[in-house]
């Protein structure tokens, strides 16, 4: 049924910390691995080892350079389904294959009734849905619904594969409807961000912004300190300014790097 539930008992989702994500793509591969080998239909691949590899992924990590006018920094940005509260990917579905669960808010596709019209992927602003050419149906993040309630797994393993795989614990899984949950508290404390809020899809997943970096003042102080300690003012002028042991190493470094050894 493509009518959205007026209320979901839980709002399960992910809290992704952009401050500590290192862009290792571990979540991407573990997602692909879990969703290709368990009960679910595999995420198809084409030409895997050829010149033009292609395949279905439910999670991707983009790398951006962010400049807010004061400083610039690298941000690794994992992108997957945000399990929106008002997902238009569900309401546009002509078959009822797409649905949002009342009990936990997870947005799913029923692979047995999807006709592969791709309209849901057109309706999603976040690129969360991909078409599987081999099976002729749409695929999307299930929040590892086959893990999180799986009683055959140990309690600590009942989390989405991407969350378990993250080596820096940049991904947290929890219930955003519960104000006492870890994700709610952290999101509240660190200003969890919503993507494209103005479109009003009401995404459940939140992103924690990078923590404020050292101020310009501190950075300047550090630069001055190192400049006075090492006489370091830039590679081109090193020979003229250095003295003692430092200049010996600089000389050695220059000699070694100018020769092709």
């Amino acid at each position: 049924m493509t009518n959205l539930p007026s209320h979901t008992e839980k709002k399960l989702g992910l809290l992704i910390d952009l401050d500590i994500c290192v862009g290792c793509h571990g979540c991407v591969t573990s997602c692909k691995e879990w969703n290709s080998t368990d009960d679910m239909l595999p995420l198809s691949d084409f030409d895997s080892y050829g010149d033009n590899p292609d395949g279905v992924f439910l999670n991707r990590v983009h790398g951006y350079e962010i400049d807010d006018g004061i400083s610039s920094q690298t941000v690794h940005f994992p992108r997957s389904c945000l399990h929106c509260e008002t997902p238009e990917c569900v309401t546009v579905c002509p078959t009822g294959a797409s649905y949002k669960r009342q009990e936990d808010g997870i947005v799913l596709v029923n692979p047995d009734s999807c006709i592969g019209c791709k309209l849901c992927s057109w309706a999603c602003p976040y690129g969360a849905r991909e078409y599987d050419h081999k099976q002729g149906i749409m695929k999307k993040c299930t929040l590892c619904v086959d893990r999180i309630y799986n009683e055959e797994l140990a309690q600590e393993e009942r989390k989405p594969a991407c969350v378990l795989a993250c080596p820096t614990s940049a991904r947290l899984f929890g219930d955003f409807a519960d104000p006492e949950s870890e994700v709610s508290i952290l999101s509240e404390k660190r200003g969890g961000m919503t993507l494209m809020e103005s479109l009003d899809y009401k995404p459940v997943n939140r992103y924690l912004p990078p923590r404020e970096k050292q101020s310009e003042k501190t950075e300047n102080a550090i630069n001055t300190f190192f400049a006075s300690e090492n006489g370091y003012v830039g590679r081109n002028q090193t020979q003229a300014n250095n003295a003692g042991l430092d200049s010996f190493f600089t000389w050695l470094d220059d000699k070694l790097s100018s020769k092709n050894i």
Binding site: I66, G69, T74, M193, Y207, P209
Partner: peptide
């Protein structure tokens, strides 16, 4: 990507 609208964002990787 959730940042303030006017933040400059460039593709890196």
């Amino acid at each position: 990507i959730g940042f303030a609208s006017l933040t400059k964002v460039q593709n890196l990787e």
